[in-house]
Design a binder for these strands. Structure first.
Lengths: 240, 240
DNA sequence: TGACTTTATTAGCAATTTGATACTAATTCG
DNA sequence: CGAATTAGTATCAAATTGCTAATAAAGTCA
């Protein structure tokens, strides 16, 4: 009944845009996220204790968002993430703490995975890997972004074969299971894990074995996705 | 080895921001998406046939992205969507076709669900509901957005109880199954559907029944989510 | 009214999948 | 050699699933 708004898009509004990246890597028994030192400000007020922030930058002219995320990740981790996907976009309203800027702030947040070995070779890493269970004080926004990123990653774990992105070309089944447990944050049943893995034919055995100190040597496998139609299952109400 | 980029975020860059909304509603045997007539331009070149576009607008000053999406949806559908979630953000690079604008374009795309009955009461709808199987010619970008939105919606179907958003407070189990089949785009087995639904205890029976023409009357149920821990299942390699 | 159609709901059952425990295999350590 | 350790399997009961069919409660129509 009240006046309708015009169909045409209103005049474009300018905002400042930031691309944040939540990089995750295996670290011992849990996932770690890459944090970089926050800006301490030119004034260098010494009493300000170091705050940690997520790697972030604005897109450069004519740079695609995905490319910005890749650049931010490469710059911060000193390595190319083996997976980098968009997690969310937040904001719109003006942020009061953005003193000096009158524009609203929009943040596009990405999550990425960095394999262990890529990290080891990183010659130019900025920031530190911090275990998820021992995060320092972060801004509310960054803490939420990490939560959202981890959730988005976990939601993709059994939709896409992202676990293999954290492993080298050949790996043992125990390593694969450990990656899954790390990504999901819970233990998995060994026999069931191997049974469904074999049934899926996602991996193929190589003729190599690796002896890792004590215990029986493990056979090495490689990721070899079959090209078949995915079977459709019933609804999973138990996930609701 | 090469010079590292400075840690500090580079100077904020302004972009124009658009929020697109992919609204979906049940329509007979399939889902329909809400399209609005495209801008024909001031010059009104008559030979330009009407093109359809997704409802879209730029955020207003100090408006959160989610609020922008809600406003665009309300304005286009004449009703409030019962679900509205962010699907993706794309862009970054300058779009050549944006003549007159030098800024890059970023689009945040949302998907939403509009129940049948809300739609019926819509007094001020703009645009038309078009079945997904009979979409008119759309821009590449809008066609992709619809695909992404439908995929994002389907990915959430068995993660969140979004199916109930398309139904009134009480409904028959056949209606519920029909909604699921519509959302997922495939048929479901009746007995299995009811069995797992009952096992989940997501719905509770009312003492009402509805007679819908011929056939045995169906009992009405209401959505009554239990507050319990979700059971964790094994990995689903068969989805990869 | 009474047979027939239609839709809802439930039973029964075979096949598959899952979770748990235990068992065998191959290696290092002492 | 024997204990400890890690890898990989076997076995089995319980739970889940897909399917067919039975039963229930209406309408339709001769």
């Amino acid at each position: 009944m009240p006046d309708r708004l015009p169909a045409a898009r209103s005049a474009p509004r300018t905002v400042t845009l930031a691309v944040d990246v939540v990089l995750l890597t295996p670290r011992g028994n849990e996932l770690a996220v890459l944090l970089v030192p926050g800006e301490t400000g030119r004034g260098a007020r010494a009493r300000d204790r170091v705050r940690w922030v997520l790697p972030s930058d604005a897109p450069r002219p004519d740079e695609l968002l995905d490319d910005t995320a890749g650049r931010v990740a490469q710059d911060a981790a000193g390595a190319t993430p083996s997976l980098l996907e968009q997690a969310a976009a937040v904001g719109g309203a003006r942020r009061p703490q953005d003193s000096g800027s009158n524009a609203a702030q929009v943040t596009i947040s990405y999550f990425g995975l960095v394999p262990d070995d890529a990290e080891a070779n990183a010659s130019s890493r900025r920031g530190e890997w911090v275990g998820l269970s021992a995060l320092p004080a972060l801004s509310q926004r960054h803490a939420e972004e990490i939560d959202v990123a981890v959730s988005a990653m976990r939601a993709r774990v059994d939709q896409q074969p992202i676990a293999f992105r954290l492993l080298p070309a050949s790996f043992t089944l125990s390593e694969l299971q450990a990656v899954y447990e790390l990504l999901l944050g819970r233990r998995l049943h060994k026999a069931s894990f191997r049974r469904s893995l074999h049934a899926s034919a996602l991996v193929e055995a190589t003729d190599e074995w690796r002896s890792e100190g004590r215990g029986r040597p493990a056979q090495l496998f490689r990721y070899a996705p079959p090209r078949r139609k995915r079977a459709r299952r019933g609804i999973r109400f138990d996930l609701l």
